[in-house]
Design a binder for these strands. Sequence first.
DNA 1: GTCTATATCGGGATAGAC
DNA 2: GTCTATCCCGATATAGAC
Lengths: 231, 231
Amino acid sequence: MRQAPAQDRGARSRDAILDTAGELMSRHGYAATSISMISTACGLPVSSIYWHFRSKEGIYVAVLERATTVLLAALPPAEVPGADVTQRLDAFLSNLAGAFRQHPRGVQLLLGLGVVQKDAGAAAMAEVHRYRDALVAWARNSVSSVFALRDRPEVADELARFTLRMTSGTAVARWFEPDVVLETEPLRVTLPALAAHHGVPVRGTPVEGGPGEDAPGEDAPALGVTPGTAP
Amino acid sequence: MRQAPAQDRGARSRDAILDTAGELMSRHGYAATSISMISTACGLPVSSIYWHFRSKEGIYVAVLERATTVLLAALPPAEVPGADVTQRLDAFLSNLAGAFRQHPRGVQLLLGLGVVQKDAGAAAMAEVHRYRDALVAWARNSVSSVFALRDRPEVADELARFTLRMTSGTAVARWFEPDVVLETEPLRVTLPALAAHHGVPVRGTPVEGGPGEDAPGEDAPALGVTPGTAP
DNA sequence: GTCTATATCGGGATAGAC
DNA sequence: GTCTATCCCGATATAGAC
């Protein structure tokens, strides 16, 4: 039987195409990434690419789909195990930063960088919206769990938007300085401040409720990053 | 003398080209914006565009240059008149949000959205870096003035980066929801929190110092946008 | 499933009349 | 300064042998 090896080779080619396409599209954007670039980068001829995918838009959709799968697998869905708010927040931010560090291209693609409006067809844009919304929902559920905001959906929404905008901005900065990572410390400070500003009780943060500790501390709580972010 | 009208017409054509090119490039990105799109959008034939500008890259550089001029004119350079930290912060954020609201395309272009890496040539990328750096410098000087950080340049740098990343993220969000504006309230809350976290004394913010007012006010101070932004 | 070869179209850029 | 007409190349996509 030679069918199995052939199928295997096809699947590996498909993966290779998606790998290089994701790399190139996240770096150059959808419009600036040509099929020939993908072809020369991954070694396979153009028509093989068209055998695996109907069109350029099809490649893009497939890249998005796989990036979503990988990324959502890397993001524990809003369980946030810690008992303390600070611990849960650290776990959440650690997950976010870990995903950003390990799958930066996926983050860039899912946040919609790389496409601008009608570059791609309507179907592709709809997919981008879907995946982007999925990320937003994950962030909203996570912060809702971190700060116990079941009855304050507006606050959860604002905190999630705030977090994702910082993430987007950092992804943009990565275009110019590839070494940039998502800094968790500013978010660890500002998210509780935002929550407190909306009247959400937050323990261990500089809010007027508990005057016992006046100094927030120069050093962060030094909670170790949660292991297990890398599957 | 017919020279004056002719020159005037040429200058107006040049402006029209830059207007439409800036609009299209900020919406579709550099690579996805074609000369023919610009031609049909502004009415002038392709060769007229090439008479005014050497190449597509030349158009892009000119668009960036003009956006920088307009934007930096709309941003009072780090004077920040208020006596109180809160007042100065409000003025700063009001200026930033006003510029974002009135020149969103310029902000998008200067922040580097619309180009991804080597889309344009090396010269254009260098220009993007220059202009982006100018924006960063403006933000750093502004926050330095707001929080009196002459002797804490590191803190000024972090606050400026934080602010511009939020701005970048908001600009990205504008691709998907064109109505999105730069929200000043989260920044008004989080910037003092970040400053306080670094040991910078901040008066009138929800830090343990002054518990008199806990609510900074739901409504914005309604500081008028600076006039004279549109020449 | 993979390759060579090719059709077709649109992009950037130029020539030269007016 | 503006227009028409054109060159050249690269991009998407397809045909058909292997």
